[in-house]
């Protein structure tokens, strides 16, 4: 068990928001409270500008909250200094909206970056880095792009490299900021299958910000089939089902929180916008 996973096991909660406020010129997070348990999947839906991406950034201390508490891996990060935050963030993988890949580094170097730069990890030997990078790229089926630059890849491939970089350290929590935005439906489903695969193969908790209801549906209704690859309906084996919780945000507030069934049963007009049958 990694040090991060151990800490989670002790703390019990991976991420907790307690009445969090955050504003720039206008309020972007308004009294936001929720808890994410280990292994849980949380799908955050909401219109553009409803505060979804801001919430992810606040979760790892990239943005400072004005009021309330953010507890990450059992540690209150609300007032933590940047240099101490680095150690806590090492337990979290992040996929940024456009991938956030360093365009001056090759794909291989991008994926190796967290292993080589997170000092809390200590020096990882070069062969070990190489092995884990290859493994992470194989995970997203992009081993052959190792020496290419991100600009040479398609949007969907860049997103997949971003996932490889987010999971290469095997963190107990992975944040995905709009993993399918701007992708065609086929590529989008490939990406969601990878996210489900990461969840089911490694048991990491995931927070997925999206505006596509199907993304949440895939997470709630499908499991990764480790024997034959690909996704299978979860109904076949309900006991294996990790919790998938939906949250709907509107103008910085959480207006809905619950599982898929109660989301689909919701009568709220705004919430219903995000549910397609």
């Amino acid at each position: 068990m990694s040090a991060g996973a151990e800490r989670v096991a002790q703390a019990g909660t991976v991420l907790e928001f307690d009445r969090v406020d955050l504003s720039f010129d206008v309020k972007v997070l308004d009294q936001v409270s929720f808890r994410v348990e280990p292994g849980e999947t949380r799908v955050i839906l909401g219109a553009a500008g409803s505060g979804k991406s801001v919430l992810l950034k606040a979760a790892i201390g990239l943005l400072r909250v004005d009021a309330g508490r953010v507890v990450l891996m059992g540690q209150d990060i609300t007032r933590l200094e940047e240099k101490d935050l680095v150690a806590v963030r090492a337990n979290v993988g992040v996929l940024f909206q456009e991938g956030g890949l360093f365009d001056s580094l090759t794909v291989g170097d991008n994926v190796a970056y967290p292993l080589e730069n997170q000092q809390v990890r200590g020096a990882v030997p070069a062969e070990e880095v190489q092995r884990r990078v290859t493994e992470a790229l194989r995970f997203v089926e992009l081993e052959q792009t190792m020496d290419q630059y991100p600009a040479e890849l398609s949007g969907g491939m860049r997103r997949r490299v971003g996932i490889a970089r987010a999971v290469v350290t095997e963190p107990p929590l992975v944040l995905y900021d709009s993993p399918t935005a701007g992708l065609d439906p086929i590529t989008a489903n490939t990406i969601m299958a990878l996210i489900a695969k990461e969840r089911d193969a490694k048991g990491a908790a995931s927070i997925i910000v999206t505006h596509r209801y199907q993304d949440g549906q895939i997470m709630a209704d499908f499991r990764y089939n480790s024997e034959r690859g690909g996704l299978i309906p979860a109904a076949a084996d309900p006991s294996s089902a990790p919790r998938t919780i939906f949250m709907v945000m509107r103008e910085g507030r959480i207006v809905f929180e619950g599982d898929k069934a109660s989301l689909e049963a919701s009568r709220d007009a705004y919430v219903r916008n995000f549910v397609r049958r």
Partner: peptide, 14 residues
């Protein structure tokens, strides 16, 4: 603007 600076912070570099 392409979030590389945020990524850098998130991945443990100042």
């Amino acid at each position: 603007v392409s979030e590389q600076i945020d990524a850098m912070r998130a991945l443990g570099t100042d």
